[in-house]
Design a protein around this nucleic acid. Structure first.
Lengths: 223, 223
DNA sequence: CTCCGCTAACTTGTATACAATCTTGTTGGC
DNA sequence: GCCAACAAGATTGTATACAAGTTAGCGGAG
């Protein structure tokens, strides 16, 4: 029998949080945007109660700033933030790589599978797909570290990084070698060579960072 | 005129969040405790609305786990968590030390001032004071790094670490060399010798971690 | 013309109320 | 005696309502 979807009655809060985060990440709610509660609540067809809970979480993740009695605005990220975030991300992801190298000598399998998809995405210039693949790649490494707290930390910062990357790519830029960098990292991991993987990662992140920075500085210091 | 306290009408949420976090950190709300909303709300003399917001934040910080329609419970931390948390903290704090060494050659001043207070606290076995001094010391280093995102990341993990440290010390153990380690780290920093500072920190954290771990394993795997 | 103070509209903060869901204890059948 | 349905109590999820605070625009004094 075709049973009706096993609705677990997912609370509004869940979907709402993802939707808001997504909107901020993709720039639909740009930096500095005022998030008026009643407005958004109506848009989503819910009351302000679950919305406020979601906003508190986003505040904790550093995506919005809430001033008492004045409401929430989308946080702005300047060049300094980009530098600091990439610096932070580098040490976290380096740790993930070292642990992953110890535990799983082979991340090549899943990554190779994605390579085909990645090439298609690059060919068709599908930014959305490419973003997902990029995130999945780095999430895989984090997960392979076996350190849940590290996964959580990286997940939180990923949102922030995504924001600046989105702004960068939407400005017309396009990634060339993203996936070859990934393949090189996976290759090093597969050989258990953590140092080489970290070196590759460092280069990868430095390059991304500098590209974003120059774009950011050129387009007027706001993101 | 003696003006009445310039009450900015601090929303309930603010104080509530701190109070709850404090209660979890000190173990008053131990691991696994069910946090029944109405109960707590009444205790604080408020409604469930601001309480729920605070719980969402604590969920984001990893201090509580909220299951839909089932409420929040204080998260349990096992030996694996302790290992992972210290590993994470080491790379974060190492980064902070390196950046602090570049920016401020002298953290000795404020730290020396605290040394006297620390000695008094150790002599009088005032755990509370010692905890505060410990946190202040590490918070100073984080702040001296000049990386706000790093400060936030360390702050979040500090809560978790505090929980296991509290459990450890309340079991009757007592720190001997905590402050001499701190002084050694500050000394190395003052000479701009980041490598030495990191080496000291590594030893310091490894020692703390192992002490907590053996206590934890002995007392039955729960914290 | 500019600046200050006041009022009105807007928005947030929180209490109350009720619906939806989960839990637990009980009863009846096997 | 054991297990399965059921029902009552407990607890969470969210809407509505109102109080408190903030912002913006207007009018008048200087």
């Amino acid at each position: 029998m075709a049973m009706s979807a096993p609705r677990v009655a997912e609370p509004r809060f869940e979907g709402l949080l993802d939707a808001l985060r997504e909107a901020i990440l993709t720039g639909r709610y740009g930096p500095g945007t005022r998030l008026v509660q009643e407005e958004i609540a109506e848009q989503f067809g819910i009351s302000r109660i679950p919305l406020r809970e979601a906003l508190r979480r986003l505040e904790g993740e550093g995506l919005v700033v809430i001033a008492p009695n004045r409401g929430a605005i989308v946080r702005s990220l300047g060049p300094k933030d980009v530098v600091d975030l990439f610096e932070l991300r580098l040490v976290l992801e380096s740790l993930a790589l070292r642990r992953a190298a110890e535990r799983y000598a082979d991340l090549r399998g899943p990554t190779k599978l994605r390579a085909a998809e990645a090439r298609r995405a690059i060919a068709s210039r599908s930014l959305t797909t490419l973003f997902r693949l990029d995130r999945d790649f780095h999430a895989d490494i984090a997960a392979a570290s076996g350190n849940e707290h590290l996964v959580a930390a990286l997940g939180g910062h990923w949102s922030q990084i995504m924001r600046v990357m989105h702004a960068y790519f939407q400005a017309g830029n396009y990634p060339k070698d993203v996936w070859s960098d990934h393949e090189a990292i996976a290759e090093a991991l597969a050989h258990g060579d953590a140092d080489a993987a970290v070196a590759r990662l460092t280069a990868h992140l430095t390059e991304s960072r500098d590209a974003i920075l120059s774009h950011l500085r050129a387009s007027g210091e706001r993101a």
